[in-house]
Design a protein around this nucleic acid. Structure first.
Lengths: 217, 217
DNA sequence: GTCTATAGGTGGATAGAC
DNA sequence: GTCTATCCACCTATAGAC
């Protein structure tokens, strides 16, 4: 069946790119996991690179639409925490989780390819995020008029970094502690809550002091 | 000369792994940039994987030693901000910068390989960071006794994520704004200052509320 | 220590039958 | 749409001369 093969390829690519990255995943491995023929990727997508773009588009576009929708729905006087919820929660909702609530592979693929950044994806990511990042930064500026715009710009990117790292490593982070007998809940709702609290505190922090170079020694 | 070739290989690998990742970088490209012979990597390091470990060890070990040293040097009543400075500043100091002050490639390689995580590096990273992460988390618990240990554990990892993402993308983040005519300083001291302020605010944020699932809609 | 040459394998992509 | 067979460029690693 045609449509099912295409979806199976997207699913398999999503898992493998998330686990291993783009460059380290071969077409043979990928088509085998999808129970498809070795030639199926080129038939359906044209190339490995175009497959990767589709893998990302399938997840990012709905998330960014939802982010924009929620940002627009906010009242003018909404606090920073609500702006950050509009940015972060869409990532974790809407199927972002396994049945046990843990973070799903498709979140990890975004995190991983976002950092691996193969050359052909650079422009793709820039397109997907540029406009949105500016809108959120402007909105945060309304919430925190005491902070310079460049500081808010950095802070939004710090939030993105925390998010990407968490999506990729949530299981690992939890398992280190669990090996010591500490139970660390890592369902999507818990992680989202932790991240939103952290991001709000970080974004609203007082303006940075200039560093004292002597104290660095 | 023997020693120089070895160093040239480490330098070239550092740059290329930082830009492209481990899997996407070939030995040919790497030895060519180092002006060395194609066989030099195997002679000096044994394999591509062992070269990557050396690339990381050269940077991470001094940084983590300095982190531990500064943590030990802190007075008992040191505030969270000082604990986070002990964690973050060693990354940016001691040659972490270009002559113009921007973030050096060798920071980026740590960020990138940290997220690419080829299988043979998983255990290496775990060894390098496990003990240190626990020591910093315990220390932060003293600064913020109102927060549960799991929350602090998550928050330290959010900080790591923000750090890794920033190391890899500082130039990119700045250049997006600069294309619009906004000057964004991205020298190492500025970035470190921004990150420390953000991290302090995030780590000390109030405990997360349980999320209201309805408000997510 | 450095080089050339090459082994031995895998990569992405395609041609053409069905 | 799916398959087999195959091309050929590229990969890591090594053998052996210098």
């Amino acid at each position: 069946m045609s449509t099912d093969t295409k979806t199976a390829l997207l699913d398999a690519a999503e898992e493998l790119f998330a686990e291993q990255g783009f460059a380290a995943t071969s077409m043979r491995e990928l088509t085998q996991r999808a129970a498809a023929n070795i030639a199926a990727v080129n038939y359906h997508f044209g190339s490995k690179a175009d497959l990767a773009k589709e893998v990302l588009r399938r997840r990012i576009e709905p998330i960014n639409r939802e982010r924009a929708r929620r940002l627009d729905a906010l009242p003018d006087e909404a606090p920073a925490r609500d702006v950050l919820r509009a940015f972060l929660e869409p990532v974790f909702s809407g199927g972002a989780c396994e049945s046990d609530g843990s973070v799903h592979g498709f979140c990890r693929v975004v995190g991983r390819l976002n950092v691996e950044q193969p050359p052909f994806l650079r422009e793709f990511f820039a397109e997907q995020f540029r406009g949105l990042a500016h809108r959120f930064t402007r909105r945060l500026a309304d919430c925190a008029p005491h902070l310079p715009p460049e500081t808010l710009w950095w802070r939004l990117h710090f939030v993105v970094g925390a998010l990407a790292h968490t999506l990729m490593n949530a299981h690992l982070i939890a398992s280190i502690r669990e090996a010591e007998g500490v139970v660390v809940p890592h369902d999507a709702a818990t992680i989202a809550g932790e991240l939103i609290a952290f991001a709000t505190g970080g974004v609203l922090a007082p303006e940075p002091h200039p560093l004292d170079p002597e104290a660095t020694k």
